[in-house]
């Protein structure tokens, strides 16, 4: 199996986000960064598949030079090859990003053969555009299924679940949750899948893996692409919600105040 996982460097969840003075970007001065969570799960899935079936996981990111950190993290959890498509701007729009990634993927495939699977996160944790994976699949002429919470590759005896049935060689079954159930798609490989958080629990790197990742070779593949039609007007940080705690009392003495409050909230109506 040859699997490519595209990841994005995003601000760490829970961080206090500030916006630059021109309103065009997130102020990264005091932020920690991480791999977008859906993509971390996509990477884990890819590593698990190749651990069972053999093969190689390549990880690609389009981002600033510092995004090398996310590639090295991927190395620490078992990925094999790493490609950074560097940009100097804050971010590229989805069309431009997808065009550059599709070009870079095309060149990798021309050299080493097609990837059986190209995995994206369902959407990035920062922009949340839901676009890049779909656009790359379209550019490569491959089927894509988004919102995936289960992957069964044909020929993988361990992964055959009752939900996806026996998957023929050369195909992949992709399961996604819907209201009240799930639906399964079978698509021929090569294919593109958009993976959702929850498909697995990403592993921690081992100490050995972490140390080895510092020596992993990261290929830098500079790309140019036309900007798309989507332009940012400005980012806006909402006013912080002020929360206030009112202590109604302690012990039995608080009961009347609790009753009053419940009445006020309409609980007794």
């Amino acid at each position: 199996m040859r699997i490519l996982v595209c990841v994005k460097r995003v601000p760490a969840p829970g961080a206090r986000i500030n916006v630059t003075a021109d309103g065009q970007a997130v102020d990264a001065a005091h932020l920690g960064f991480t791999t977008s969570p859906h993509e971390e799960c996509a990477l884990e899935e890819a590593v698990q598949i190749t651990e069972r079936l053999g093969g190689e996981v390549t990880v690609m990111t389009l981002g600033p030079a510092a995004a090398e950190e996310q590639l090295r993290y991927a190395a620490s959890v078992g990925a094999h090859r790493f490609v950074l498509v560097p940009i100097t701007e804050v971010d590229w729009d989805p069309q431009r990003t997808a065009a550059a990634l599709a070009d870079a993927i095309g060149d990798l495939e021309a050299a080493d053969g097609p990837f059986d699977l190209v995995l994206f996160g369902n959407e990035s944790a920062d922009a949340g555009g839901f676009q890049v994976g779909v656009r790359v699949a379209h550019a490569l002429g491959r089927p894509i299924v988004n919102g995936i919470k289960g992957i069964d590759v044909g020929g993988d005896p361990e992964a055959q679940s009752s939900e996806t049935g026996d998957v023929p060689e050369g195909q992949v079954a992709a399961r996604r949750e819907i209201d009240g159930g799930f639906e399964v798609y079978r698509v021929p490989m090569p294919a593109v899948l958009g993976v959702k958080e929850g498909i697995n629990l990403p592993r921690y790197p081992t100490m050995k893996g972490r140390l080895a990742s510092k020596k992993a070779e990261v290929a830098v593949d500079e790309r140019t692409a036309e900007a798309g039609g989507q332009g940012r007007v400005r980012l806006h940080r909402p006013e912080e919600q002020v929360s206030e705690t009112v202590i109604l009392g302690t012990g039995p003495e608080a009961a009347p105040a609790v009753v009053d409050l419940l009445e006020e909230l309409g609980v007794f109506q």
Partner: peptide, 14 residues
């Protein structure tokens, strides 16, 4: 060093 930084990062993350 890169090696020590890796130890630090890994441990802090954990």
């Amino acid at each position: 060093s890169d090696e020590l930084q890796a130890i630090y990062d890994q441990t802090v993350d954990f």
